[in-house]
């Protein structure tokens, strides 16, 4: 399974003009060929900036990015042929049909004639759009439009497919379909998939994940590895006096208690054993206690001390 990295990001920092804080600060990571690599982070964490760099929309100001051995700044043209990009905002021409969009995209990638026609048939087939090929894009549902976007990104058989928040505007069913398609692509075409998301359940479907917060990489690994970094179970206690409770737990049980959203949160192996002890030794103030297996959000809280949706 372990193959050589196809994308290398080395100490990349990026700051938008007029912005006081950097959008990315010293990010380094590798993406291996054929994997579905997820970039998970809240809105404004810098994940779209990272994708903007990988898709050659932005140029790195510090650090270096290599894609398939090419330098992003020096060999931009060579890289553009290798990547397919699916943007967060639709990039289809709504006044054209699906097939016309695909044809135009093919021409931009210097595909012509029979070869282009074969590719069009193929990507329509892969995305299940063959029957809708003559539909105007503006007449399509959100789910079909996304699939058409992906078909467009695949027309030149890119080595790497880059997707920014691919499930934006999709209902849960269409979202499942989308990820099934992405998995099939990674397997049948050996396409490396890089996708950003702010949805935990989507992140779970990736083969490897980068967690990003405030422009820095805070964790990297498979979803299993990341969740495994949390010692056992996650306990959440609601109380009228979270400060007091936290202090009490810290003294008595010497644990890693944190206050998150007015609740006290701690990680502990065999959590079910400690809950009764806490409740009975600090009686009357705990209104509820929850025990759960670690999720990716717990990994996020573990690393940052705040919830994923902190800003809202």
């Amino acid at each position: 399974m372990m193959t050589q990295p196809i994308i290398g990001i080395h100490n990349v920092s990026f700051r938008y003009p007029k912005s006081p804080t950097p959008a990315l600060a010293n990010v380094s990571l590798m993406v291996n060929q054929g994997e579905i690599f997820g970039i998970l982070g809240p809105n404004g964490s810098g994940k779209s900036t990272l994708l903007g760099l990988l898709s050659t929309s932005l140029a790195p100001k510090e650090g270096a990015i290599t894609i398939a051995g090419f330098d992003l700044v020096k060999d931009t043209a060579a890289i553009r042929i290798l990547i397919g990009v699916v943007f967060q905002h639709p990039a289809l021409d709504k006044k054209l049909t699906i097939e016309e969009n695909l044809k135009a995209q093919g021409y931009l990638y210097r595909l012509q004639g029979r070869k282009l026609q074969e590719r069009i048939e193929h990507v329509l087939d892969v995305t299940g759009l063959s029957l809708r090929r003559r539909s105007l894009v503006e007449k399509l549902s959100g789910g079909l439009m996304r699939r058409a976007e992906i078909a467009k990104g695949l027309i030149h058989h890119p080595k790497i497919l880059i997707l920014d928040e691919p499930s934006t505007g999709l209902d849960p069913g269409a979202r499942l379909d989308l990820w099934r398609h992405l998995n099939e692509l990674a397997q049948t075409l050996q396409t490396t998939v890089v996708a950003t998301t702010h949805l935990m359940d989507e992140a779970e479907k990736c083969s490897r994940l980068a967690l990003i917060n405030e422009g820095t990489l805070i964790a990297l690994g498979t979803p299993q590895e990341l969740k495994g970094q949390i010692g056992g179970d996650v306990i959440t206690l609601a109380s009228a006096d979270p400060q007091g409770l936290k202090k009490f737990i810290a003294e008595k049980f010497s644990d890693n208690a944190q206050i998150v959203d007015q609740t006290v949160r701690l990680e502990r192996a065999q959590g079910h054993l400690i809950i009764p002890q806490i409740i009975s030794s600090y009686p009357g103030t705990i209104s509820s206690a929850t025990l759960s297996k670690p999720t990716l959000e717990d990994v996020f809280i573990h690393r940052t001390g705040h919830r994923f949706w902190n800003q809202t």
Partner: peptide, 14 residues
Amino acid sequence: RREGFLQSVLVSPI
């Protein structure tokens, strides 16, 4: 450029 067709033209090899 930001929300449409041109986005994909800008990252294409042309």
